[in-house]
Amino acid sequence: MKRSDSFDEVKQLITDTPVPQIDVKDQVLDRLRERQNKKEEFRVKKRMGLIIAACMVFSVTTAYGAVKVYELKNEKGEVVSQITHTTAEPGEGQHKTYSQLFNEVRESVKPGNAAAVYIVPDNPNKIVSFFQIPITSTDRAVIQKEAGDKFTFPAELAGGFTFKDGSVQHEVIRDYNKEDFYKEAEETKKDVIVKELKVEPTFQLIAGTYSNSKGDVTVRIENFEKVKYSAAEAGPDDTVENVKVGGQEALYQLTNLKGENGSVVRVDKSIQFYKEDKKLMVFVSTSSPDIAKEDLLAIAEKLVK
């Protein structure tokens, strides 16, 4: 039997594997419209800035009910730009998109908390999502409190990188049943069903960002108490090396992230090592082109102790 025949069997398996049906058209178009509006807003602002810089101008504000019209005139008094600003709240019955409703739910959840949400409009696949709002702070003490005695986030890293901000995530306890959401939505006729979720008391991930004149470095610790092993992939144009940090094994990885045309748009560098006694995986990483592997190694050397 020829090889191509045997591949036909593999092909059949691939084509026969069931694939869920999706419909993302409305979501994509909503997002594109939103992006276009933002670009237009920026374009108008930029144009206003240029005119203001070039001419003596003044602005007039008038109000018609809930609509304000802003005008920008040139030296001759001619209107060269006009922005109509609708300040009224959306009226009842106005359709809200999935993303608008989702953002409203997100904004209602406090940092550190998590929720599961079922949104009825624009959700033909009846997807129930869950999310967590991480704790973020520019106060190192807040981040250190979450890390406890497992890891110390110093005020300054080797190389003079000083603490800028940090974020903390906990593992979400997903003790919910999708059917309950569907049932409640059906019974109450509500568009949004939300259930607060608990999170594990110990952190899952903490990241602290440090900066100096060369750029930012992130120190990320991941709780490996429940993790048997982790796997990541590197491509042929990436670099992976065994290195030593404080006498122990570590990995250096350089990853090229590419844009839609295949050109490199960002280069990430990281050192990772494991703290056996604390069951922690530690990553020291940067996207700054001015921060070298040696800089990361020097930082990791101090952190491994």
Binding site: R106, S129, F130, F131, I133, Q204
Partner: peptide, 16 residues
């Protein structure tokens, strides 16, 4: 089934 949230953008919604 308790797959931990990954380290993408903060709070990125994940669907089971």
């Amino acid at each position: 089934n308790r797959v931990p949230a990954d380290d993408r953008e903060e709070g990125a919604a994940r669907v089971e």
